[in-house]
Design a protein around this nucleic acid. Structure first.
Length: 750
DNA sequence: ATCCGTGAGCTTTTT
DNA sequence: GCTCACGGAT
């Protein structure tokens, strides 16, 4: 359907809205004023929002006047894609659709100077901010033994999410722990500023600061965003709530929030369920639409979900119903231990595949904690069933990848001392802790950044000549590439810089299986830059760094491949599968131990279970183990009380037919670290679903190739093998270029 | 300066 | 079972 600039009245809705039920239509067509859409699980929420945006576009609203905020990149992508199929890609790509963090980062990047940052500020993820906390504690002389840095970080983060600044926190601190946290918090903020860096929470808070301090800027964005959509509104925290409120308080007031209080599962991250419960108080003229028809699940599954959530007190009134058939009963799989649990799941999975002609991609294995994935993985791998793990240990959190990112940050933001410290001895450069300490002191005293101190290290009398020498060598190496930056494309800059740092050589020289893996990961990150460069109109290192700071593996999970999906229930929100297994239904694990005596937390766990149940379309399995390994120790547990909250007639117990052999040795997987990486998409060799990677056609001297940036050129020479393979190509536009074949995706044109 | 062994704490969930 | 800080040895 193409965009038509035709004025429509509400009475004559465009045809495509007729595909919606009457409530959905109302939600999509109520475009003016505040609107609360209470959307139960499986009620077509995403569909309604995309239709609504398509409708706005069709009415002639310019796409850049529409804002859609989501929590995950995945949700944003999906929304964009679906809008694209309705109105075309050129229009949909101009809609401001993205996560809170990425949209705000984008705005902040163009307004950064107003807040005393440069536009190339670094974004610190939670690991980065943890190391800042550690460093601060070191300088303040607070023992990490007595005060766990992790706890400090999370207290700081939750203070930030509640809009409590460092000064105020310190003032209001009651006990010693809070006083120390306050002290660290203040220093932490100072250091981030000095580093020209923001953490995740700052992206929200600085947005509000910007709006508060610069009313004309606020006005600009209020006018730009005529129509605002917020997905998963129940998961917004205080800062997000305020930012939205400010944006929507302009002349337009067209704020549409979508959510389901029953699916609020991020309280631990500062989400405040009151935001959705009180929406009608905040906007007394708000229209309310309830989407209560479920199109996803069987009656049985929905009934079970309803049984469970009925045990929670705080809820918005709604009643989900469905026209779908009764469906199969919910199977309960009782196992003796986690290994048997995995075997039983596998057996059931195979039966489903055979009897109902289902493919791997029709299944999801859900669990409470990532650690549980291992037993399930082992079983799937042994059975040669392809699987993919969503989330877990992230590619971007791996040491070598973070090191590479830290190096690249230096090119963009040399003031980022955290990154300097991170990479200074990767590879070792002979600048030890003592020298480093002296340089830092010097930098502090002279009020210059660490990098500047490196540049002038020969003037630091407190360190040895040799250390000063290597510090300067390092600094001038970095500086050389900073100077090159304006002149060469980001991919080339990054590749040659990382080469020059010696990181790659260090990993190569170590020559262990592990280090070669790491080497691969670094290459992989570099080729991501190449990919982005080929895709974007104006590729920049800044944009790339911002992007990867805000993505997670969850976003990259490729659900199109034919694989069983393994993930936490948190990660599964928004997804659906014909058959769902929820593993580890045990007291102490789900609900989690600490939630057992805490009513609020127990309710959140229950909502999480609700989310898990409602992912299933046809069939749900619940499994538990009487004992399992946790912390390398055997733990005994009772079945989860959540199972008991489902009425008995919906359940059936599967027992006795497992012919389980106690003697099966628990063998350690050959290479757990690799297997656990979702990024590798590793599946057993004998996997018949896997695809053979496309072999590249033969490159030879004299042949014409096409490069994403440089256009068509002629190959002059070829050298190196495998990942080191290079081509010397002559481009009429830019001259001769040495290109790594792995990054430069050359197309052969003749 | 760097390597290596030890012990403590940890994991619930993530932008 | 894994990661990290710390301390002592090289």
């Amino acid at each position: 359907m193409k965009l038509q600039l035709v004025k429509q009245t509400q009475a004559e809705l465009p045809d495509f809205l007729k595909d919606l039920n009457s409530e959905q239509q109302k939600a999509a067509a109520t475009t003016e004023g505040p609107l609360l859409i209470i959307a139960g699980a499986g009620s077509g929420k995403t569909r309604v929002v995309t239709f609504r945006i398509a409708y706005l576009l069709q009415k002639g609203i310019p796409p850049h006047n529409i804002l859609a905020l989501t929590f995950t990149n995945k949700a944003a992508h999906e929304m964009k894609e679906r809008i694209a199929t309705m109105v075309g890609n050129s229009t949909s790509s101009k809609v401001w659709a993205g996560t809170f963090h990425s949209i705000f980062a984008r705005i902040l990047r163009s307004e950064a100077e107003n807040l005393g940052y440069t536009s190339s500020f670094s974004i610190y993820d939670s690991d980065d901010s943890l190391s800042v906390v550690r460093a601060v504690m070191n300088t303040l002389g607070i023992s990490q033994q007595q005060v766990p840095p992790q706890g400090v970080r999370s207290r700081i983060s939750s203070a930030k999410n509640q809009m409590i600044g460092a000064q105020r926190y310190a003032n209001e601190a009651g006990n010693i722990l809070e006083k120390q946290t306050g002290q660290i918090y203040q220093e932490y903020e100072k250091r981030l500023r000095l580093n020209n860096a923001m953490d995740f929470d700052d992206l929200l808070i600085n947005m509000i600061n910007l709006f508060n301090n610069f009313p004309e800027i606020l006005k600009k964005y209020q006018e730009r965003f005529r129509y605002i959509h917020v997905d998963e509104y129940q998961d917004t925290n205080r800062a997000q709530y305020i930012a939205i409120k400010m944006l929507a308080a302009g002349i337009h007031r067209n704020l549409c929030v979508v959510g389901d209080d029953a699916q609020s599962i991020y309280k631990w991250r500062g989400a405040d369920i009151r935001n959705i419960l009180d929406f009608q108080n905040d906007y007394d003229d708000a229209a309310v639409v309830r989407l209560e028809q479920n199109y996803r699940s069987t009656k049985t599954i929905l009934q079970a979900a309803d049984n469970v959530i009925g045990n929670n007190r705080k809820q918005l009134a709604k009643k989900l119903w469905t026209d779908n058939p009764e469906g199969a009963k919910i199977s309960v799989l009782p196992a003796r231990d986690d290994r048997e649990e995995a075997d039983m799941i596998l057996k059931a999975l195979r039966t489903e595949m055979n009897e109902n002609f289902l493919a791997p991609k029709d299944f999801a294995l859900l669990y409470r904690t990532n650690a549980q994935s291992q037993a399930l993985e082992d079983a799937l791998r042994r059975a040669a069933i392809p699987y993919t793990i969503v989330g877990g240990l992230s590619f971007y959190k791996r040491k070598e990848v973070k090191d590479t990112v830290a190096y690249l940050r230096l090119l963009v933001n040399p003031n980022d001392s955290e990154s300097v410290l991170r990479v200074i001895n990767e590879p070792p450069r002979g600048i030890g802790a003592t020298s480093l300490q002296h340089i830092r002191t010097y930098a502090d005293e002279h009020n210059i950044s660490l990098f500047e101190a490196f540049t002038t290290a020969n003037q630091i009398t407190t360190i040895q000549k040799r250390a000063a020498g290597s510090a300067q060598t390092f600094a001038s190496m970095v500086q050389r590439f900073i100077d090159l930056k304006p002149d060469i494309p980001p991919t080339e800059l990054a590749v040659s810089f990382i080469e020059a740092t010696g990181l790659l050589r260090m990993l190569k020289d170590e020559n262990t299986e592990e280090s070669l893996d790491r080497w691969n990961n670094v290459q992989r990150l570099l080729s991501n830059i190449a990919e982005m460069s080929a895709r974007e109109e104006n590729p920049s290192l800044e944009a790339f760094l911002q992007q990867i700071a805000l993505v997670s593996d969850t976003d990259e999970a490729d659900t199109t491949k034919n694989r069983v999906a393994l993930m936490t229930m948190h990660a599964a929100k928004g997804l659906e599968f014909p058959v769902v297994f929820i593993a580890g239904m045990e007291q102490g694990l789900f609900p989690m131990g600490r939630a057992e005596n805490n009513a609020e937390e127990a309710e959140e766990e229950r909502r999480l279970f609700y989310v898990g149940i409602t992912r299933a379309r046809q069939k749900l399995y619940l499994s538990y183990a009487e004992r399992r390994f946790r912390f390398g120790e055997l733990i005994f547990a009772q079945p989860s009380r959540f199972i008991g909250e489902i009425s008995e007639e919906l359940l059936e117990l599967k027992v006795g037919n497992m012919n389980y052999q106690q003697s099966t040795p628990r063998k350690k997987p050959i290479d757990v670290t690799i297997i656990r990486q979702p990024f590798f998409d590793d599946i057993p060799k004998e996997d018949f679903f896997s695809q053979v990677p496309p072999t590249s056609p033969k490159l030879r001297v004299g042949i014409k190739v096409k490069h994403a940036q440089f256009g068509v050129g002629t190959v002059q020479a070829l050298s190196g093998e495998g990942s080191k393979a290079q081509a010397l190509v002559y481009f009429p536009t830019v001259g001769k270029k040495h290109l790594m074949l792995e990054y430069a995706k050359l197309q052969i044109v003749g």
